[in-house]
């Protein structure tokens, strides 16, 4: 069991399966939000489902519009459980607050996309600023 410290985040305590890539995240341009998969061909997770996953990515991109999108995705039940970033931008943090989705960033031990591997089970506690790799 590995415990990773990060900055205080947003949203509820959740656990689930990690989906990790050294790539960025734009709700508007990287996703097919109806099917729940990464759709932009250049994205390292292209073709993979993000539904109920703990996404682990480098940073969030995109304009102001994406703040609404996590809420819209969650309302249809096709959304990640949490998103972990090296650095979140303000817009996506605001989106996580509306959607009540777990989001954390700024990990003390370095690049979170190398600290966690796809398929591992992780628990995210945004209030405490702690992510635990369970298995």
């Amino acid at each position: 069991m590995t415990v990773l410290k990060c900055h205080k985040g947003i949203g509820p305590k959740v656990s689930g399966e990690a989906l990790v890539a050294d790539d960025n995240f734009s709700a508007r341009y990287d996703l097919d939000r109806i099917k729940g998969i990464f759709s932009r061909p250049q994205h390292k997770l292209a073709g993979q489902s993000y539904k109920d996953k703990i996404l682990v990515l480098n940073t969030s991109k995109g304009g102001v519009a994406s703040a609404w999108m996590l809420y819209e995705m969650k309302s249809r039940g096709i959304a990640p459980k949490a998103i972990l970033f090296n650095n979140a931008n303000t817009i996506l943090a605001q989106g996580a607050a509306l959607a009540d989705m777990a989001m954390c960033d700024r990990f003390e031990d370095g690049d979170v996309t190398t600290l966690i591997q796809s398929g591992q089970t992780v628990e995210v506690d945004p209030e405490a600023g702690v992510v635990t790799i369970l298995a």
Partner: peptide, 24 residues
Amino acid sequence: GDTGVVIYSNSVCGARSNFEGGPS
């Protein structure tokens, strides 16, 4: 909101705003 509005207002007007998404 709107990144173009924020950057103009901060830079040219000297106002103070973050990028505020719709909900914020």
